[in-house]
Design a binder for these strands. Sequence first.
DNA 1: AGTACCGTGTGAACCTTTTCACAAGCGACC
DNA 2: GGTCGCTTGTGAAAAGGTTCACACGGTACT
Lengths: 223, 223
Amino acid sequence: MTRIAESTVRRLSHYYRVLEEVEAEGGRLISSHRLAQREGITSAQVRKDLSYFGSFGRRGLGYNVVHLRHEIRWILGLDRRWRVALVGAGNIGTALLSYRGFAQQGFEVTAVFDRDPSRVGQRVGDLVVQDVSRLAAVAAEQAFDMGVIATTLASAQQVADALVAAGVRGILNFAPRKLFVPAHVALRTVDMAVELESLSFALSQARGPRRRVPGRGGSGGGR
Amino acid sequence: MTRIAESTVRRLSHYYRVLEEVEAEGGRLISSHRLAQREGITSAQVRKDLSYFGSFGRRGLGYNVVHLRHEIRWILGLDRRWRVALVGAGNIGTALLSYRGFAQQGFEVTAVFDRDPSRVGQRVGDLVVQDVSRLAAVAAEQAFDMGVIATTLASAQQVADALVAAGVRGILNFAPRKLFVPAHVALRTVDMAVELESLSFALSQARGPRRRVPGRGGSGGGR
DNA sequence: AGTACCGTGTGAACCTTTTCACAAGCGACC
DNA sequence: GGTCGCTTGTGAAAAGGTTCACACGGTACT
């Protein structure tokens, strides 16, 4: 079996979301075409994505909504609970805790850490913020599967190292920096600055491509 | 000139970040190789990315840090101010307001809206939260360039429509849903649920690929 | 049971992005 | 001023992802 493309996995998440909605609306069957429409992509893409994992549809009919949702649930590993350690109890951390689909899809934040003494001891949701120095000790008890880094830029790599040492196999990083982790640890980074800058680039395209200075390349000094 | 790949633009953001750091450290020149190392990619990628926009380096020497940073700054459109409307003053919205690099890179949030009456009138940062119904009126005065959607799932599309009507050319969406906007409006979506599910998938791969049921394809009823 | 219609699953074609590999430019040193 | 070592910029090759297009399987209706 070929390695599954990251883009395929992300679309699977979207299909899952659509299927939840369709199921709530009472739909029993859905065609790749309708599924695609709701995501703004092509039906061939949907069928190809699903085909990497099996044959879930019926020709001439489409996909059974409940069945397909369960299959994707299994594929994405949402049929189990993941113990998540959250590091950083600021706005982003708090946002995540109250995020729909977070607890709901099996991501269970079982501990929250922060470095700031003014935050340690505070309640967020059902949890009490602990000092980040306790990470290793708590991990020994709770065996976290994943860690979320919602700290400042400065401590991000350090926290990542601590999480890896604590045995997590996946990290979701909100700090705007490239983190280095061992190959056996999965890393996803959400960088709002990059997203904004990508928008900024798109909006700037209106003024036309970079005018190339006629003469020699660039640089200009550096002495 | 070929269309620039989204992935190239995102890497440009990262290069920019590295260059800021290197400049702060006092480095004057940097080779594509060193730049690549700090991002965990190959030097050919760096050179190719930059080559889409011009020739900024000097053979045998590398890139002038200050110069290259300025070029990328220009390319990404960070040399100007963008007026941003923030809709949704919850955790994510607030997080964005206090985000480093947000105001710093020229993204100026000039108004904050929310639907919740308990939030309207409150201060966040330097701004007072206004009712979302005032969006059109405020937009007429302030001419927003971009909008950020940090609302609940339910109102996201509605807010997107309102932002488009208000004349924004770019939208950053944090709601976990596919939004539909006209082609002339750039859209970027940050979906934390997708990121988590992608991690979940990666961690689940350990248990091996989906065991295919020997018999017929799937479905199982649907009557 | 035959015909008409529909929609999946998938090899092949196509397109995009990344990586390779090397000619050519540049500074340093003799 | 010639040689050496280093690094860019870029065509060409490779890899990766998406779209096409159609054979095949299935339902519905007569």
